[in-house]
Design a protein around this nucleic acid. Structure first.
Length: 597
RNA sequence: GGUCCCGUAGCUCAACUGGAUAGAGCAUCUGCCUUCUAAGCAGACGGUUUCGGGUUCGAGUCCCGACGGGAUCACCA
């Protein structure tokens, strides 16, 4: 296995430095970076930090180092020095060999499967009382992408979600449905299951508010009214009955949840995300309670007079935190402890868990990981909260009460529609049947949406303007797809003409090719960096940079009609490596590529 | 009030562990389709990186302080 260029240059620089100045420095001391476009050379070593050890000026150090490196056994064949920056020129043949070597590997960019420990990635965590919305889209796309990135970095990955299937919210939908539903079902009404249940959640809220208003009119205080309204009392009664296992209540709960799951299933399929295993809070909250009581016995936690169990995290710089109510019922934290325990039981080889959850829960996960540590899970310190910022609308946060929530199904359908309009206007899909066309629209539309949500640093809040909609031109998913399709189209045409990829190159890449070659070469580093920082935006931005390089190159470099066969071979190889690397990168974003558009 | 995150072009976003003259897209303007897909390419315009200090050969990046925005500090989830 060849060393990658940058580390190769680091070693070369280290030994050259030792040869020139007699002091051995660790290779990390030699920072290798891409040479900026305005200077000659391919890679640059910054020599300012070296001056201290060479005991001569940065420029002089760079000069000597450059000469020694050119003389040494490495691909450096020339250099220039600009103000302490040593710009190295790499032998062009190095790049042809690389194109036919590492870059030609089928799994280029990825580490061998299962070479790293098993990681579990949780994403989605929906409530079962309403449909998925734009916030869930960012969550799901992020989690799904991080799963694939970790896989590419060599980890075994188990993708899970936690379904928040119990609690007062679902009871509200149940109460409203019983009261107003007249037996309505998804089948009878033709309404998608999650939308139907969401409808009754809204109906509950409306009826509840009317009751509150009436009570206030009758002289009650607002607080009193909100506590005494019959609707809320019924919902609380339903929750109580559910916890007691009341047959009718549980049956209705199961039925309505099953409607929601069918609806979610449909949405997930459209989104193109999937899970290896689902966890349900109704299964885990009791486990958590046992585990907390267990910890109490072992003296890890403490109990107050009313029977509530607390954990004292003041030594970790946090507060005391409730783990179990005085009446023995579970809080949010209790469930998450139970869920974590169950997962570590289900997957004994699990090295860590990654939780894709919004940044409003950062405190919660700090506490959770500390508690898991106190309970004796060594994996706790490697667990990670993949925290992401909100998707904001121009008028601020999405508010379900104010009807500003952007529905996931609607948004995706809108994307598909735009993709269809653009394609039809351009008349590009004539000759494809309806099903094949639909697939193209979906891929293009989804690419716009996924790329839009993934190209932004996860931790940052981001802006979504429904009126401006999501672009299909410029720095977008469709732009990347478009260039992939162009590349694929060339390779298909080559095949038709009987042209095959050459076994070796007789022409080396020149300055025109280097932008593209450089982008291709960066893939393994990008994957490694994205995996260690759980950051898909690095991959998204790389996909764009690569695509831009190809698009620009494509413009004035005919591939198949190149001036001579050697040039054509080089360009075909570049096109092939481009399409395949791009496919890898886009796969890591969960974006499927069409062959035509 | 305590803690955490963010602040970069008119708008939406980049900038690898501190590195050279801070980059894209959108918008505006100018060229380019008889040639492998113009959802494209080339160019112009656009910046005191919120402000003030500090660290050093070098700061958008690190430290301190202000200002602005967001989150969190529940026997809610």
């Amino acid at each position: 296995m060849n060393m990658r260029l940058d580390s190769l240059l680091q070693s070369a620089a280290a030994s050259a430095f030792e040869h020139c100045f007699g002091s051995a420095l660790p290779t990390e001391q030699f920072s290798v970076q891409m040479t900026r476009k305005e200077f000659a050379g391919d890679r640059t070593i910054v020599c300012f930090p070296l001056a201290r050890h060479s005991k001569s000026a940065p420029d002089a150090t760079a000069e000597q180092l450059g000469e020694a490196m050119v003389a040494g056994e490495n691909p450096v064949i020339g250099f220039n020095v600009v103000k302490g920056f040593l710009n190295l020129e790499i032998e062009p043949a190095y790049w042809s060999q690389w194109l036919m070597g590492e870059a030609a590997e089928a799994e280029y960019g990825k580490k061998p499967a299962d070479s790293e420990p098993r990681v579990m990635v949780e994403y989605s965590s929906p409530n079962t009382n309403k449909p998925l919305h734009l916030g869930h889209l960012r969550n799901n796309f992020l989690g799904h992408s991080v799963s694939r990135i970790l896989e590419a970095a060599g980890h075994s990955v188990t993708k899970v979600q936690i379904v928040n299937d119990r609690g007062i919210h679902i009871c509200k939908s149940m109460v409203a449905w019983r009261k107003f539903g007249q037996g309505e079902t998804p089948e009878a009404s033709g309404i998608k299951g999650d939308k139907l249940v969401g409808k009754y959640y809204v109906a509950f809220d409306k009826a509840f508010k009317e009751e509150v208003a009436d009570l206030i009119a009758a002289g009650k205080s607002k607080e009193q009214a909100e506590k005494e309204a019959p609707m809320i009392l019924e919902a609380q009664e339903a929750l109580r009955l559910w916890e007691q296992g009341d047959t009718d209540t549980v049956a209705l709960w199961k039925t309505m949840n099953s409607w929601v799951y069918a609806g979610f299933e449909h949405t997930y399929r459209t989104m193109g995300v999937e899970f290896d295993k689902l966890y349900y809070e109704s299964d885990t909250y009791l486990i958590g309670r046992d585990r907390v009581l267990d910890g109490l016995q072992r003296g890890v936690f403490e109990q107050t007079e009313d029977g509530a169990v607390w954990v004292d995290l003041t030594e970790d710089g946090l507060d005391r935190k409730l783990l179990l109510r005085g009446d023995g019922t579970a809080v949010y934290m209790t469930q998450d402890i139970g869920t974590a325990l169950l997962r570590f039981q289900d997957y004994p080889d699990l090295d860590r868990q990654v939780y894709t959850v919004g940044n409003e829960q950062e405190y919660h996960f700090k506490v959770l990981f500390l508690v898991l540590g106190k309970l004796g899970f060594p994996q706790a310190e490697r667990c990670h909260h993949l925290s992401y910022g909100m998707v904001e609308l121009p008028e601020g946060k999405m508010k379900s009460r104010e009807g500003t929530v952007v529905d996931a199904d609607d948004l995706m359908e809108e994307m598909f529609g735009i993709a269809r309009d653009i394609a039809q206007e351009a008349g590009k899909l004539e000759g494809l049947d309806g099903g094949a066309q639909r697939e193209v629209f979906e891929r293009v539309g989804l690419s716009a949406l996924k790329y839009f949500l993934l190209k932004v640093d996860p931790k940052k809040n981001m802006m979504f303007d429904p009126k401006a909609s999501i672009d299909f031109y410029g720095n977008t998913g469709p732009f990347i797809l478009f260039n992939y399709v162009r590349g694929r189209s060339i390779l298909r045409k080559a095949e038709e003409e009987g042209l095959t990829l050459p076994p070796s190159l007789s022409k080396v890449p020149g300055p025109d090719e280097m932008e593209l070659v450089g982008a291709l070469h960066a893939l393994p580093d990008v994957i490694a960096e994205a995996a260690s920082t759980y950051n898909p935006s690095l991959v998204a931005n790389w996909c764009y940079d690569l695509t831009k390089a190809f698009s620009s190159y494509y413009q004035d470099h005919p591939i198949l009609a190149a001036e001579d066969p050697a040039t054509r071979d080089l360009r075909m190889v570049l096109t092939h490596r481009f399409t395949r690397s791009l496919k890898t990168g886009m796969h890591l974003l969960g974006i499927a590529l069409p062959e035509r558009m």
